[in-house]
Every structure is written in C-alpha cells, then in structure tokens.
Design a protein around this nucleic acid. Structure first.
Lengths: 326, 326
DNA sequence: TTGTAAGCGTTATCAA
DNA sequence: TTGATAACGCTTACAA
C-alpha cells in the first residue's frame, strides 16, 4: 500500500507537505504541489479512508434503518434518500437490523447521522443515542421527525373528489386496532366528509385488513358486490390501489368512466399502473429531500432542538378521476 | 464517543488491558475481563472500525449489493446473511446502488469482501474488483458463485410427488423468454416428468407471467377452471404459492385433501401459510451460510480460485401433500 | 496478569 | 512555504 510517506520520500519533502498538497491546500507552492501530485499518480496512491476517518472523526456517511423491506413505497423512499444523500456528498449505509442493533452498528461505523423508518413497533423501543437521528413517517417527541401528514392527504383526496362532483365515496384501506399511521388516514377521510356535509356511513369504509395488493383486491370485490355503489374510491396504499384496479377491471368496469380512483402513496409508480392513477400524499421526492436536509442540518448543528417537520401532501392528477354531475 | 481509554479510566486499568479483554484474550484475568465487559456495556462502547482497520488492515466488514426487489425470499436471505456475517464476527453493510457504484462505495469503506445478489442484468456488467466477491444465486465464471440448483429442486419436487402416487402434475411458475433462473425450474420439472415416464403436456405448464401472489392466484384460478385437473401442483416461488393457496381455497377445495401443493423457495415462512406448505429448494439458512463461508474463505485466502459452490435443494415436508392411489 | 509504548496513515497545529 | 509533531482509537510486542 502506497502512503503519503512513500510519496514524501520520493519527492524529497515531508509527509505533512504531501498531505497538504493532496488536499489542495493553498499553503504549498504550486510547483511542489504539481510535483507531488505527479508522483502520487505514478505510484498509484489511494488515500486510506480509515485513517482519514480516524483523525477527522467524520465519516461523511449516513446510516438508514430499514426493517420493512417489502413495501414498494418504502423502497422507493430509500432509493430517493440514497440519491439525496449522494447529492449532499455523503454515502448511505443500510441496515435491516432492529433499531437498536442497527444504531449500534452505525455507531461502530461512525456514521454522522441516522434515518429511522418509524414503524409502529419501533416507537416503543428505548433508544440511547448521542448521534443525530431523524424519524421518518410519523411524529416523535424525543427526536426530530418527518410527518407525512396522512390525515391531510386523505382530507384533500375527499375534497378533490367532491370538487369533481362526487358525493358517493368509499375509503378502501387498512384499519387495524392499534396503528396510528393507518388511523390517521381514516380520520382525514371522515373529517372531510363531515366538513363537506356528507354523512359518514359504515358502508363507505372498507377494511382491507392489510396493506397489500390482495387485500385491496378482495376488499374492492366485496364493495362492488355490495349495495353501496360509490362513484369514487380512495385506496389506502399503493398496493391496495393496485388491487382496486384489478377488481374493477375484473368486474368489467372502466376507470374513470364508471368509477374514479385516487391512490394514497405519492410515488411515480402510480403513473405506470394499467390506468395512470391520480395519487395523493406527500411526494416521495420531498419526503426524501426533507429527511436528508433535516438530518444534515442536525449533523451540522447538534444542539438544534427536536421538532416535527411536515411534508405537505399534494395531489398528482393523472387519468383515474373524472368530473361527475349529480 | 466512548473509547477504550474511557473504559480503562473507569475500570482503573490500562487501555491495553481493556483492548485484550474486549478481544477475549486469554491474557487477562477472568475477573478483570468481566468487570471491563460490564463497564463497556454500561458506557455503551462501540469499537471504532476506522481505528481497527488502520492497525489490522482489516475492517471485519462485508458489503452486500442488493437489488431492491420486493420478494420475501430475497429479504429472508439478506436477513440470514446478516446473521451469518455477525456470527462470523463481521458486520454487514447493505447497498441498493447498481453493482459498480455499490462496489466503489464498499471499496471506500474498505470492506473485506462483497456479496452480490446475482440478478440477470448484473451478470453482464463489467466489473473491475481487486477484492473478494461472491455472486449469489446462479453460476458465474469470473467470480466464485453460489448455485442454488433450481433445476434439481424442481426435479426433486416432481420425484417426491410421484413417489406419493401423483401422476397428474402441474407447474405453476414464471416463464419469461430470457431468464435462465426461471428457465431452470421449468427444465427440472420437465426432465423429471420424462425420467418418470410421464409425457409432458402443454396443459401441465401454467405461465404465471410474474413471480408474485397475484400471478399465482390468477394462474391457479385459470388452471382450476380448465379441463386438466392435476392432483398436485408445484409453485414457482413463495408468492406464487401463496396465490395458489388462495385460489384453491376460493374454489372451495382443500389442501391436501383435494390437491397437493409443493412450493419452491425453501423458506421458513412456508410453515406459516394457511396450510403449512411442503417446500423444496436450497434452504435459505444453507444458502446464507455457504455464501458467507465461501466469501470469508476467499477473504482469508485471496489466491483461492473462483468456482461454483452448489447448495443442494432439500424437501421440507409439511402438511400440503398427501399420498394418492391411482 | 497487567502495563508501556510503538505504530497503523492521516490531518492539523505550530514552529521554523 | 515547509517541516516537526501531536493526535485520532486501536492492536500487539515486549517489559514489568
């Protein structure tokens, strides 16, 4: 392995001069610098990151704790976060370990900051971390967190459909007993209904009992067979929305001619479904950007106090909704 | 940051003693060792990898290049590999970047070795790496690789069903034009049929046109409605097998009473399906262990030459198959 | 059994 | 403008 000392020996200078030259310091004479650079090149010098890390105590690395590896939206967000991190001249390390052990590993690697996907189970974990951490997905008192405003998203979806003339709506989503994330969606939908003067009825809420395609498919089939025939539905997740589309298609109906659909999870993939689906929710790009910005800001200013950063939902209009007259 | 010096101060010993204790050296008194370990624990000590790497020129870290594909088996393997890596006293870094950029990142991190999930697209990439790499999933000439023997797995599945008396079989799997991995499954199934004197018929092969639940579900529904009624089917992936089960259930049939099912992808999750499913394939534990063993062996002996390491498929009998008499 | 001290490759602070 | 030198956190002879 070629070190700066080898270069120094060949160049006939001290190795501290070599270090400065290699870091393009203005403190070395241009001529010396060029000579050193040339020798470094010839010798095939590669800096030793471990040593750099040791002395600077910065790794320019961000760790991401990502336990739920099998959801499209989450992988999309991870991918975007990766891009944002690289844009900011950092590197990303992923860990699929549980929160605490992932954080330990990241400490060993001396990451400069950590992003945690805030799953339900994680929130309760005791976490002792003297390192900047951002929780992504909900609100969290102890650490800075990114709130994706699920409630507002569903509120907006209903409002949008209402503005298109729809009065018979349905919520097709997961309604577990103890899950604030999902509950927020339900509340947002209900709240909008009330504000718009639509009386919430039980048949408007179809519990998919899961977040995946099959759940959405089954729930939608059930809905289409029921007495209540909405003119528009809102899907509770990307996968659920996929299932809704299949079910509608199988029933021989057309989107948006026979029924309008809005999907939650504002990811680009909504464009590529059989029908490009109008989506609502905080756009993944913004979620990723906010997350990384907040984290880096906390890295640079460790005393910054924890708060909740909201990413506002937006509606991306595509081809799955149409106006309707009563 | 907590260092061995902090521990030394608290324990009232020198930091070299701490180092030895932490590395479980026989040169420290058991009592001292325990005391030091306890303090390290209390202080939340995490070793600094950069420093370790500097002095030992080893980072004790393995990088894994992982395609962000939402398949249970892949996440399971990654999880198992993570465990194996930790068992071997290494740490795992995941990267979801494309092969080359992931490898570059891993080099900067000075990992000791790299595991690559061998997707179709990756195989063609030009890769210049002077670092041990293992390709996982197929066969690869230039690098050591782990072959999960898909062909043998399907061969064995057919043989097993045949031994139970089944003569009317069906393959429910993904048959894309250009994918050796999937094609191997098809070949194994066919080969066994021929060897056992069963004449392969087109209706025995149901192309799911995808590897996910919905694909299996749809394909199985189609099969159940067709003229050909097999007494046993083999599912081409875990998710496909899930879909098969749904379809069978919806048709009002019982597994294994009315139809036997074997699933490919030998993962523990097969146990937790509605019917615990008899699975075939290289067990994920062994895949993970072999992968990590091979990589570490190449790390310790860099001149070892690249070869293909096979992980033999096994059948895990559960409750989804029953004997049948002609 | 424990401690001392050198050194891994680098950056950064002074002094020359 | 350059060069000594002291860290950074750790392992490992070797000395005590």
């Amino acid at each position: 392995m070629v070190t700066i000392k080898d270069i120094a020996r060949v160049a006939g200078v001290s190795y501290s001069t070599v270090s400065k030259a290699l870091n393009n310091s203005p403190l070395v004479q241009e001529k010396t610098k060029q000579k050193i650079l040339k020798i470094a090149e010839e010798l095939g010098y590669q800096p030793n990151i471990a040593a750099k890390k040791l002395v600077s105590n910065k790794s320019k690395t961000i760790g991401v704790v990502w336990p739920t590896v099998n959801r499209v939206t989450l992988s999309t967000i991870v991918t975007k976060i990766n891009e944002e991190i690289e844009n900011a001249s950092y590197s990303m390390i992923l860990s699929i370990n549980p929160l605490n052990s992932a954080v330990n590993m990241f400490k060993r690697f001396q990451v400069d900051g950590i992003v945690v996907f805030d799953d339900q189970e994680l929130s309760d974990q005791h976490l002792e971390a003297n390192i900047p951490i951002v929780f992504l997905g909900g609100t969290n008192g102890r650490f800075p967190s990114i709130d994706v405003c699920r409630r507002d998203a569903f509120y907006n979806a209903v409002q949008y459909l209402h503005s298109l003339g729809h009065r018979h709506l349905a919520f097709v989503g997961h309604l577990p007993h103890r899950n604030n994330r999902q509950f927020e969606k339900y509340i947002g939908f209900t709240e909008a209904l009330i504000h718009l003067g639509i009386n919430p009825q039980p048949e408007m809420f179809i519990n998919t009992e899961g977040l995946y395609l099959y759940h959405g498919y089954e729930a939608m089939k059930k809905l289409l067979k029921s007495d209540y025939q909405p003119t528009a539905v809102v899907g509770g997740s990307y996968e659920i929305t996929e299932g809704i589309i299949r079910a509608v298609k199988e029933a021989g109906l057309k989107i948006p001619d026979d029924i309008s659909v809005i999907g939650y999870d504002n990811i680009p993939q909504m464009e590529n479904l059989e029908v490009p689906v109008t989506a609502v929710g905080a756009p993944v790009d913004k979620i990723a950007k906010t997350t990384v910005d907040v984290l880096i800001s906390h890295i640079n200013n460790p005393s910054e106090k924890a708060k909740v950063y909201k990413v506002e939902p937006e509606i991306f209009e595509r081809k799955s909704c149409r106006p309707i007259s009563e």
